[in-house]
């Protein structure tokens, strides 16, 4: 696992991918920071963090897209799968490498907060809990996109599928709140109840609902559980995909 982790991390920076990821991420984050804090002359980073979630959707599949699809496409997986390492070791090595790069990306938010603290009062609890929330949400999302990377041989296909899934999850939350608003405007009680119930059901499984507590600086255990268990579950699925492929 250690060898694979180190190789993947090195590979991010040997190829353009790691740099592209960090560039896009920092560019996005920088623009958002200007728009939501500097231009508005405020040290409140809440708006910044909420928009960062959209940037994440765009850049996270970049990190996981080549990890398994490329191995398969270029037949390098034969080296890994015939080496004395477990499938779990292979998947975890790759996953943790992507997670590390992501952590390097979001670590810059502390620097942003530090800069802002020279101009106004920064609520550090909100900054810290938001960074933790973004990290956990990213961990869950990366496990999902890594799973899709294991299903294809082409990294661009992996990116598009990953992007599609993350956008869907992002929209899912919007749909749920739109449904809630709509149900309130309905005059027929039965329909109103149905849609409001549907909206509640959707928001309870939505990945983003639980992040709102974090956004206000509250530590939500159920949220942590949801993100961590999603990450574990999808990594487990990925291992199963690799295992199943041997039997085909």
């Amino acid at each position: 696992m250690g060898a694979i982790y180190r190789r993947e991390l090195g590979s991010f920076f040997n190829s353009a991918l790691g740099w592209v990821f960090l560039t896009v991420f920092y560019l996005g984050a920088g623009v958002l920071l200007c728009l939501f804090t500097l231009v508005r002359r405020t040290a409140d980073m809440a708006g910044f963090f909420s928009w960062m979630r959209l940037i994440m959707v765009l850049v996270l599949p970049l990190l996981t897209m080549p990890l398994l699809s490329e191995e398969r496409g270029k037949k390098t997986d034969q080296g890994l799968l015939t080496a004395p390492v477990s499938l779990t070791g292979i998947v975890m090595g790759k996953y943790l490498a992507a997670l590390t790069l992501y952590a390097i990306g979001i670590a810059i938010f502390f620097l942003y907060a530090l800069i802002l603290s020279f101009f106004g009062a920064v609520t550090w609890s909100i900054v810290i809990s938001n960074v933790i929330a973004l990290f956990l949400l990213g961990a869950a999302f990366m496990a999902i996109t890594l799973f899709f990377s294991s299903l294809t041989e082409n990294q661009f296909v992996a990116y598009i599928i990953g992007l599609g899934i993350l956008l869907f999850l992002y929209m899912f939350d919007w749909c749920s709140s739109a449904l809630q608003v709509w149900s309130e405007s309905l005059t027929i009680d039965v329909l109103s109840n149905i849609f409001s119930g549907l909206s509640k059901a959707m928001s309870s499984v939505s990945f983003y609902t639980r992040i709102y507590d974090f956004a206000y600086g509250l530590f939500d255990v159920s949220g942590v559980l949801l993100y961590v268990s999603t990450a574990v579950l999808f990594n487990f699925f990925t291992v199963r995909v690799l295992e199943a492929r041997r039997w085909k």
């Binding site: 190789r7 040997n14 270029k74 080296g79 080496a83």
Partner: peptide, 27 residues
């Protein structure tokens, strides 16, 4: 087992030395 598949499983972006060091760690 040491295995050389039909297409050698080489990571194209690595140097020979780095690659073989990786295999050393992997094994």
């Amino acid at each position: 087992i040491g295995y050389l598949p039909e297409i050698p499983p080489l990571y194209q972006d690595m140097t020979v030395k780095a690659y073989l060091n990786f295999v050393y760690d992997l094994k």
